[in-house]
Computed example of a mutant assay.
Amino acid sequence: MLTRKQLELLDFIRSRMDRDGVPPSFDEMKEALDLRSKSGIHRLITALEERGFIRRLAHRARAIEIVKIPEAMEKSGFSARVIDGGRRTEPARNPMAALPAHAMELPVMGRIAAGVPIEAISEISHHIAVPGTMLSGSGQHYALEVKGDSMIEAGINDGDIVVIREQDSAQNGDIVVALVEDSEATLKRYRRRGDMIALEAANPAYETRMVPEHLVKVQGRLVGLIRSY
Rank of each mutant, 00 (worst) to 15 (best):
L2S: 10
K5S: 14
Q6A: 14
E8K: 15
L10C: 05
R16C: 05
F26T: 15
E31N: 13
A32W: 04
D34K: 07
L35S: 05
K38T: 11
I41R: 03
I41H: 10
L44G: 01
L44A: 02
A47W: 08
A47R: 09
A47K: 05
E49G: 09
E49V: 02
R56T: 10
L57N: 06
L57K: 08
A58P: 08
A58H: 08
R60F: 02
R60E: 07
A61R: 03
A63I: 06
I64H: 02
E65L: 15
I66K: 12
K68N: 13
E71Q: 07
M73E: 06
E74V: 09
K75Y: 04
S76C: 09
S76D: 14
A80W: 12
I83C: 14
I83W: 13
D84Q: 06
G85K: 12
G86R: 10
R87D: 08
R88N: 11
P91E: 09
P91Y: 14
A97W: 07
A97F: 01
L99Y: 14
H102S: 13
A103C: 00
A103P: 00
M104G: 00
A113N: 09
A114R: 02
G115S: 15
V116K: 13
P117Y: 12
I124Y: 03
I128N: 00
I128L: 03
A129H: 10
P131A: 04
G132N: 08
G132F: 09
T133E: 10
T133M: 00
S136M: 02
S138K: 08
Y142N: 01
A143I: 13
A143C: 11
A143K: 14
L144E: 03
E145F: 01
V146M: 03
V146D: 06
K147V: 05
D149R: 04
G155C: 11
D158F: 03
G159P: 06
G159R: 12
V163A: 11
R165A: 11
E166A: 09
E166H: 14
G173W: 10
G173Y: 07
D174A: 07
I175H: 03
A178F: 02
R189T: 13
Y190A: 05
Y190W: 15
R191F: 08
R192N: 03
I197G: 00
L199C: 02
E200I: 04
E200L: 13
A201H: 05
P204H: 07
Y206R: 05
R209K: 05
R209G: 01
V211P: 10
V216K: 05
Q219K: 15
Q219T: 10
L222K: 00
L225V: 12
L225A: 05
I226C: 08
S228W: 10
S228Q: 15
